[in-house]
Amino acid sequence: MRSTFKKLSKFMVASIRDLAPIIAVILFFQLVIIQQPLPNVGQLFVGVIFVLLGLTFFIHGLEQGLFPIGESMAHAFAKKGSVFWLLTFAFSLGFGTTVAEPALIAVAAEAAKVAASGGMIEATEQAMADYATGLRFTVAFSVGLAIVLGVFRILKGWPIQWLIIGGYILVVIMTVFAPVEIIGIAYDSGGVTTSTITVPLVTALGVGLASSIKGRNPMIDGFGLIALASLTPMIFVMAYGMVML
């Protein structure tokens, strides 16, 4: 109990340091440049305290729960030696964590609006909802695929840059053919799919796998899963835009 408290207070100090720059930037702009009084100072203050507590608890839970479970599962899969189950797990993790991601739901709804205003689909609520759902599942599928590919790469020890550069080339080629309206959203969708809970888990999985397989370096082979998971959605969203014309 005591050690938990000690750790929490240490994380708390770190969180204060992490948030100080944001507060400084906002105060500077509000007071010096915009020169208008802050609205709702009380609520703002409570909000900042909440952010502070939240960040502290999150980091604590990360070190106690997410990191250990990610690594222990990676070790267990490596020991078990079943590539099929490992890849199934990789896909489920990628798909499952992305399909319910709030940021993705928001972006998909926005994309449906763009498609409707561009005349690509009918401007009815039904058509837009269908388009958004289809897009969400497409992106979630692409993230699942990315994690599978990434895990497979760790097993094989391929250099990540070939996969990423190959992906870039594909993105560039598809940009030429994709509808203009979808390009901005497609590029953005790469960044939004990797949520705060997915990143630590997937990183722990990759590093754990690379360190339990002989001949793999956790630094060279363990990272790279997130990079793939933010590349494939761009390709798939553009493909979706082209197919759904």
């Binding site: 909440f50 952010v51 939240g54 502290t56 608890f57 839970g61 990360l62 997410l66 705060t196 809970i197």
Partner: peptide, 23 residues
């Protein structure tokens, strides 16, 4: 580990509420 998940859950909720109110 389960306690860690609960911490993550509480932490993320607080964090998001705070963002919603302040930032």
């Amino acid at each position: 580990v389960i306690a860690g998940f609960v911490w993550v859950l509480i932490g993320l909720s607080f964090f998001l509420i705070g963002l919603e109110w302040a930032l």
